[in-house]
């Protein structure tokens, strides 16, 4: 019997949010531009448009209406996905996030995960399951680099904690594209893992850094310390 995945629901929402991310920013901007420009033209031309051809005024009005309908549909769709976020917790212990991510990671039997000495009890912004999903993405990504050993380490500064996931694989083939949504060199994969991790970091005020060489890749997930941020839960 398959072991239930404790992160399945949170991961699914994260993937949905990642996949629809362009709607939130790029498409919304385009729609807003079209709507505002149509309104501007309609107001400037006024009666002149109707005099030239009554359909001109009608069509301009319809452009505004279509933009509104499309935007409303997108907002409604995104709101429904956003509402699937489950946790109200705003912080979590790094050690708990690491433990959950490792336990839930879907790794080949040949892969081993080691936690470097020094992991302490720092608390970071972000709820346990969401941070664990981000870490699991990084751990599984490292395992897919055909590295037998994955090393996790943490580095705490005054403002935050960086959790590094390192592998001993051949490095990332195209580092410039590794944060491009749906870009993958692995058949059967979505190409969203690193993007999900980056979005999780961004949502909680952190960041993601990727380093790659011929002897392996290292991805650092930086999250603000729980006490250092007054602005958790920003949208991503």
């Amino acid at each position: 019997m398959l072991r239930p995945d404790p992160l399945a629901a949170v991961e699914l929402v994260a993937i949905l949010e990642e996949a629809t991310s362009p709607l939130r920013h790029d498409v919304s901007n385009r729609l807003a531009s079209v709507g505002n420009m149509a309104y501007f033209i309609r107001r400037k031309l006024g009666q002149a448009a109707a005099d030239t051809d009554p359909r001109a005024a009608t069509f301009l009005e319809q452009i505004a209406g279509e933009v509104q309908l499309t935007d409303t549909a997108i907002q409604s769709w995104l709101s429904r996905i956003h509402a699937l976020r489950q946790s109200a917790s705003q912080s979590s212990a790094v050690a708990d996030c690491l433990r959950l991510a490792i336990e839930a990671a879907r790794l080949p039997a040949s892969a081993t995960v080691e936690i470097a000495p020094g992991t302490n009890g720092a608390r970071v912004a972000g709820d346990l399951e969401t941070v664990a999903v981000a870490l699991r993405c990084l751990i599984e990504n490292a395992a897919e680099a055909q590295s037998a050993r994955i090393t996790l380490s943490t580095r705490v500064s005054q403002t935050g904690c960086t959790i590094c996931v390192a592998d001993g694989g051949p490095g990332i083939a195209e580092p410039a594209r590794c944060l491009e949504r749906f870009y993958t060199t692995k058949p059967g994969h979505l190409g969203l893992g690193l993007c999900v991790a980056k979005s999780v970091a961004s949502r909680f005020g952190g960041s993601l850094a990727v380093q790659s060489s011929s002897t392996g890749a290292e991805v650092g997930l930086f999250l603000p310390l729980a006490a250092a941020t007054g602005r958790p839960g920003e949208p991503s």
Binding site: L23, R24, H25, V27, S28, N29, A32, L78, S79, H82, R231, P232, G233, E234, P235
Partner: peptide, 11 residues
């Protein structure tokens, strides 16, 4: 605030 996405409670 003008937003293309859901606005957080903090905002």
């Amino acid at each position: 605030v003008l937003s293309g996405t859901v606005v957080s409670p903090t905002t």
